[in-house]
């Protein structure tokens, strides 16, 4: 039986864990999008189990890359070839599918970014700093409060005839303003549309501040599923906004592409194998008493061996593990 060589990209974000298999031509073979639910270790284990069962007998994992805020954790669990930050991963994915892109808008669970691309190279970027008003978590919360499934949120916004104006500078004030408009009797679709517009305004004046937003514009990340937000962006920018087919897993795709490059360069993969994912992983925290910083050290253990330590400012704990084995393959 001929197994297709595939590369696995894992994006461990605050809200979702995305897994994606691409083949050597960068085509998506399979993808999985699950909620993190604050438990990255068991959810990632299960997701790996599920996606590999689904593709059992068809593919061979020839490289693994990880990204997202949980990238360090995921990298030691799976044995990654590449550990990359989200911004680079998203940039790589977009440039592979849409080489003519000039601007990438990415809105995820807890952060939003803008990536400016010129001449086929990432030339500038920004991330939200102090406020998460425009991100997925906030939309999630409001959808739950209005008792509307998040999947229908965007559709509903499109039905609005006269959107209300909602103060979107701050998530807390936006919420109280929404309540206020609700109590005035405004219909939910107008409120939702107003909310979408407020979030877009917030994004453009915070994350997009001082950036030159030129077409082609690609909109990705979980929130890109929301057609209301997309419409609001198109209205505010005056350009068409492209939402890629796999908008929700672009980070994972990007890092899978990087993993492919790295694995081809090395001629092998550091992937530990699905069997090794079944062992018992746990994290343990303790306080270091070496100096007044009293850093909280997180120790990550598989079975009986310590795979990694994080959290020390001075690096003495992290180094102890790294000296023993070069687990983190830094690309």
């Amino acid at each position: 039986m001929n197994l297709e060589k595939c590369y696995l990209g894992i994006d461990v974000g605050s809200v979702s864990i995305n897994l994606v298999f691409i083949n050597k031509d960068h085509k998506v073979v399979d993808k999985l999008y699950v909620r993190t639910e604050g438990k990255p270790i068991p959810i990632l284990k299960k997701a790996m189990e599920d996606i590999s069962k689904r593709n059992d007998g068809n593919i061979k994992i020839s490289g693994v890359g990880v990204t997202g805020s949980g990238r360090d954790l995921a990298s030691v669990m799976v044995g990654a070839d590449v550990v990359k930050n989200e911004i680079t991963a998203h940039g790589v994915a977009v440039l592979t599918y849409y080489p003519d892109t000039s601007t990438v808008i990415e809105i995820g669970g807890q952060d939003s970014k803008i990536i400016i691309i010129r001449n086929g190279v990432v030339s500038d970027f920004a991330m939200n700093t102090v406020c998460a008003a425009g991100t997925g978590s906030f939309l999630d919360r409001q959808a739950a409060r209005l008792n509307i499934p998040i999947e229908e949120f965007g559709q509903m916004a499109l039905k609005s005839k006269s959107p209300v104006r909602i103060a979107g500078r701050c998530a807390v004030f936006a919420e109280s303003d929404m309540v206020h408009k609700q109590q005035m009797g405004c219909p939910p679709e107008d409120i939702i549309r107003g909310l979408c517009e407020a979030l877009v305004r917030n994004y453009l004046s915070n994350v997009g501040k001082g950036k030159e937003i030129l077409p082609n514009i690609v909109f990705q990340g979980g929130v890109a599923a929301n057609q209301g937000i997309r419409a609001a962006f198109e209205q505010a920018l005056g350009y068409q906004v492209i939402v890629p087919e796999h908008y929700d897993v672009m980070g994972a795709i990007g890092v899978a592409i990087l993993a492919q490059r790295e694995a081809e360069r090395k001629g092998s993969t550091s992937f530990r194998g699905i069997e090794n994912m079944r062992q018992d992983f746990r994290a343990r925290a303790f306080e270091c008493n070496g100096c007044p910083n009293s850093c909280e050290i997180i120790e990550f253990i598989a079975g009986k061996t310590t795979l990694a330590r994080w959290g020390d400012r001075c690096g003495k704990w992290a180094m102890k593990v790294e000296d023993k084995s070069q687990l983190r393959s830094l690309a």
Binding site: S69, K84, E86, I87, V122, F125, M127
Partner: peptide, 28 residues
């Protein structure tokens, strides 16, 4: 921008992304 509330993870991510950007720019 740094102050007592600066998150280490976000700081590191920005630095890594910036360095990636510089590598790409140089190879271009």
């Amino acid at each position: 921008v740094v102050d007592e509330l600066t998150g280490e993870a976000g700081y590191q991510t920005r630095l890594e992304a910036f360095v990636d950007l510089l590598h790409l720019e140089r190879s271009r």
